[in-house]
């Protein structure tokens, strides 16, 4: 098992787990249990993560009550629990997946947050926050330009005074750092 704990072995193990995840997803998607696909995939993802961690524990020093003891205890409990939850899902004894809402809108929100994360490091916290808040408010159907400007600049002014000036939290300034 130690082969799978690092390097190529770990990569192969990860790919195997990924294949297991995709396989489960496809198996559910194209079967009579397609309405339980999400319910089945959540425990599978957790189990895959646990199994990935299990492989890594073989690289830890082996000693009584060593660093691998507790992680392995949690991993074995997770795997057992996932199998039980999975069993109930296959038997259709768990709730069906909820009806898909505006998943695209959520994904757009996540993309905006990720973009905000990178923008903070490039444009700095203050400018990127104004842009982020304005875009998010527009996405949430706010069509009042004055309100958008007031809220986004107001929040930035508040965070400047409280976090930056009063609490000395070194908010990222991005490329403005050279000019301030």
């Amino acid at each position: 098992m130690q082969y799978f704990s690092q390097g190529i072995g770990l990569a192969i193990w990860t790919l195997l787990l990924l294949a297991g995840f995709i396989g489960t997803g496809l198996a559910f998607r194209f079967s009579s249990k397609r309405e339980w696909t999400g319910q089945a995939l959540v425990p599978v993802v957790i189990m895959a993560l646990a199994l990935l961690f299990l492989a890594v524990t073989f690289d830890f020093p082996g000693e009584q009550a060593g660093p691998a003891l507790i992680p392995r205890l949690w991993i074995f409990s997770i795997v057992s629990m996932c199998l039980v939850v999975h069993f109930f899902t296959v038997r259709g004894r768990t709730d069906k997946d909820p009806k898909a809402g505006r998943i695209g809108f959520v994904l757009l929100g996540i993309v905006c947050m990720v973009a905000y994360y990178f923008a903070i490091q490039i444009l700095g916290y203050f400018l990127s926050s104004v842009i982020f808040l304005a875009i998010m408010m527009y996405m949430f159907s706010c069509r009042k330009p004055l309100l958008i400007v007031f809220v986004s600049t107001g929040w930035v002014a508040f965070s400047y005074l409280v976090f930056y000036k009063l609490l000395y939290i070194q908010l990222q300034l991005g490329f403005f750092e050279n000019y301030l």
């Binding site: 905000y116 808040l133 949430f140 809220v151």
Partner: peptide
């Protein structure tokens, strides 16, 4: 809500960073 939810995300970001 159009103001509240974007602000919650902004608070979440600065709160985590702080």
């Amino acid at each position: 809500e159009a103001v509240m939810y974007p602000l919650i995300l902004a608070i979440a970001v600065i709160g985590s960073f702080a």
